[in-house]
Amino acid sequence: MGLRGYGQTMAQAFEQVALALTATVTELDRVAPQQRVDIDCECADPELLLVDWLNALIYEMATRKLLFSRFEITIEGGRLDASAWGEMVNRSRHRPAVEVKGATYTALQVAQQENGDWLAQCIIDV
């Protein structure tokens, strides 16, 4: 499954990819942003940072049984600080379609486009 996000900054594009990650599991508007989890990761290479970010989220989703629907990210000098808001999986309300295994390095790209916007994308294994 491929995820792609656009934003005016790299951080915004990363937020959009994270929303797409939730959308592979359930409808975004069914997830209430009630509970906050803070996540940070660090990597000089922006593409590897994207994979780290998604894998950190996947880990939190798996171990806390959470789905996230709101993100706030700052990226500075290869360090990503994020807050993610969501709620516990409710099987009858969220009807989760798939469990995400991990983010891959396939079709991985983080780049600023000609119009100045940022694109962030990769393929996740479900």
Binding site: L48, D52, T104
Partner: peptide, 17 residues
């Protein structure tokens, strides 16, 4: 299950680096 997914995720990264 999750254990295999996490082993794969972590070692893939070490090997890339």
């Amino acid at each position: 299950r999750g254990l295999g997914h996490q082993i794969g995720t972590e070692f893939l990264k070490y090997m890339v680096l």
